[in-house]
Write a protein that binds this DNA or RNA. Structure first.
Lengths: 209, 209
DNA sequence: TGGTACACTTGACCTTGGGTACAGTGACCC
DNA sequence: GGGTCACTGTACCCAAGGTCAAGTGTACCA
């Protein structure tokens, strides 16, 4: 009766993470039970707690993995943009266009932002989780801020502007657009906001007709 | 032993709503137990379920009350702005300034947006809750869109711009800024984003130096 | 004055789900 | 052939959501 699958090293843990990430983005952390995850992955409760000491450890691991993946993804987008042009403003606008295209290409409403999902569950998570989320957003902020500073050096802004707030604005727009998009069930919201942000940037630094 | 307080009509229900709203904004819906609410309000479990058939009914009621309060608050801000000037663009900019001031005056990081808190808990709530949230955001969208259209009639935009996206942008910015603000624990984020949005609006429609 | 509706209380009980504990067990590795 | 890894299986605890039925003081109304 005891059907034992071949030893699967880290695969089971990874499949657990993937199943959990999808379920959490889909319906939220609290609504995702350990039970359904182990059924999906095909292990038992003991197996789950062998990998993660509790539910919080699970979301910590998801966030960590997510952070790395997102970093790579952002790097790729920046690299693609850098291939097209060397001029900082043009490069940033290409990056925004790529970002917009990727968001528009998603089949459904954006599955949602893990950070935001954890943000409204304060007491449910450990400090580590909140620290990871913070680190992630600060990373976006500083990356965009560096770009904007580089742009401002070449193309000084037409009027006095808060570059740090402008860097934050993209982060904020993405998270906010996901909320609006999910709530009103319109997938165009996110790409449209990115496009509008690009307009803003172009209007501040460039000469738009 | 049975200590019976004077009949309190709707007060108990209202106190329950207030306690729940604060707790939910503070730590999330899932982390808020019925137990702690009834202790705070000083009733028993039976009393709770007398007022609300379940936890979902509680958040429905909170959202309903919130929707009304927010509407009044928005109306007041618009009315105050209308007192200062009649010109649509100037009026909207005054409104944004007032909004910014109110957000900056909050003692802490903004307690958070109920809509966003529900958005990432899809399966935990009833359809009614999501419909209420949707209605709320669509209300903001259409209000701001009406303002922007009025502005565009008097001061045509300097370049082709998507006014609906621009209306959404304010909604998106507020929700997104709350997330960023809560996550990185910087209360200035929200007022700064509103200020930046005002810059954007002024830059699109007005003549800024 | 008496009746009825309201706003609860009390307490017993059920279920789900997170979490613990621990003794196995097959596969793989040295 | 011994140890470790990656689990299984079982049994059990606790918190929290939720149900049910019977009771009780208060207020208002006829």
């Amino acid at each position: 009766m005891t059907f034992i699958k071949p030893r699967s090293t880290a695969t089971t843990r990874d499949r657990l993470l993937t199943a959990a990430e999808m379920a959490i983005l889909d319906k939220g952390f609290a609504a995702t039970s350990i039970e359904e995850l182990i059924v999906e992955v095909g292990i038992t409760k003991g197996g789950f707690f062998y990998h993660f000491k509790d539910k919080s450890a699970l979301i910590e691991a998801i966030l960590e993995r997510h952070l790395v993946a997102e970093e790579v993804w952002l790097d790729d987008l920046f690299a693609s943009a850098a291939k097209e042009t060397e001029e900082p403003l043009a490069q940033f606008l290409v990056f925004l266009r790529l970002l917009q295209e990727q968001m528009a290409a998603l089949p459904d409403v954006h599955p949602g932002c893990l950070i935001a999902a954890t943000c409204f569950q304060e007491r449910l998570f450990t400090q580590t989780v909140h620290d990871l989320a913070q680190q992630n957003l600060l990373n976006w902020r500083s990356r965009f801020h560096a770009r904007l500073t580089a742009i401002a050096k070449v193309d000084p802004p037409r009027y006095q502007i808060d570059l740090e707030a402008m860097a934050d604005m993209l982060v904020v727009l993405v998270d906010g657009a996901i909320i609006l998009s999910k709530t009103v069930r319109e997938k165009e919201v996110l790409p449209r906001q990115i496009a509008l942000y690009a307009c803003f940037v172009a209007g501040v630094f460039g000469d738009v007709g």
